[in-house]
Amino acid sequence: MKRTLGILCILIVVVIVSRIAEPNFLISRNVSNVTQWSAYFAILSIGAMFVIITGGIDLSIGSVVGLVGCLLPLLIVKHNWSPSVAIPFVIGISATIGVIHGLLITRAKLQPFVVTLCGLMIYRGMARWITGDNNQGFGNKFDYLLEISRWKIPLYKDYVLPIPVVYMLVIAIIAAIFLNQTVWGRYLYAIGRNEQAAHFSGINTNRMKLIAYVICSTIAGLGGILLAFDLNSMQPSSHGNAYELYAIAAAVLGGCSLRGGEGSVAGVVIGAVLLRTLYNANNMLGIPTTLEFVTIGTVLLLGVLADEGVKWYAHRRKLARSTA
C-alpha cells in the first residue's frame, strides 16, 4: 500500500514537472496518447505480475505480442478467416503457449527464465516465418475491427477516454479480485513466499504455477490483439520487441519482488503508467530520444533503491525500539 502511494506520488510529480516544463504536455491529444499506451502496457504488466508473484518470470511476452499481432491479420486478410473465429483462435494459441511454459516449468522442472527465454526466440522466429518476414496489417476493409482499439469515448471538451483504458480497468479489477478475494490468489502469494510450506499445506503448487503462466501468456495475447488493431502495421521481426522488459519493469516498480510473493494490481498499473509517462515526457520535453532508456532505467533503479532504503530504515527503527 505504501509502495503504491509512493509511486503514485512520483507519477504526480513527473506529470506536474512535465506540465510546467512543457505546457503542451496536458493537451488532450497527448493525454489520450499516453493513457492509451499506458493501458496496453498495464495489461501486459498485470499478466507478468501473476508469474512474478509465484517467483517466476516470463520473458516471452513481447514475442507472444509479435506472434499474435502478425498471425491475426494473416488469418483474417490472407486466409479470409472470420474475425469471430480468428480472435478466439489466437487467444487459444496464447493460452496454449502458457500451458507449455507451465508444464515445462512444473513437470520437466526447467527454470522459468530458460523456458521463457527459449519462448522469446521461438515465437519471434515463428512470427517471421509464417509471414515471410513481410509487414502485416488489416488494410482498409476492416476499419470496424480497428475501432476495437481506436474508439475514444468523449469526456470533457476535447478530452477523450481511449477504449483500451476501459479494457485495462476491467482486466485489473478481475485480476485484483482473483488475487485478493479468491483462494487461488492466496495460494499464488503463498507459493511465491515459500513453495515448500505451501505444498506441505496441501496446495497443488504445480497446478497453481501452471495457471499463472497461462494467465500471463493469455493476457499477452489479448494485449497483442489490441496493439495489432491499434497499429494496423506490424513488422514481424520487431513488433512487440522488449515489451516483456517493460512489463517486468512496471511490475517491479509497482511493488513486485522478483523473489515472489509480493505485489498489488494497483501498484503494477501505476508502475506501467509511470513508465509510459516518463517515455512520453522524455519526448515532449525535447530530451534526446537516444536518452529515453537512460531515463527509464534510472527511474526504475532509483525506485527500487528508495524502496530498499525505506525497508532498511523501518527495520532499523524496529530494532531500536526493541532494544530500547
Partner: peptide, 9 residues
C-alpha cells in the same frame, strides 16, 4: 520455517 510456515504471512 522451511516447511511449516510462510514466515512473511
Amino acid at each position: 520455517k522451511g516447511e511449516g510456515l510462510i514466515l512473511e504471512m
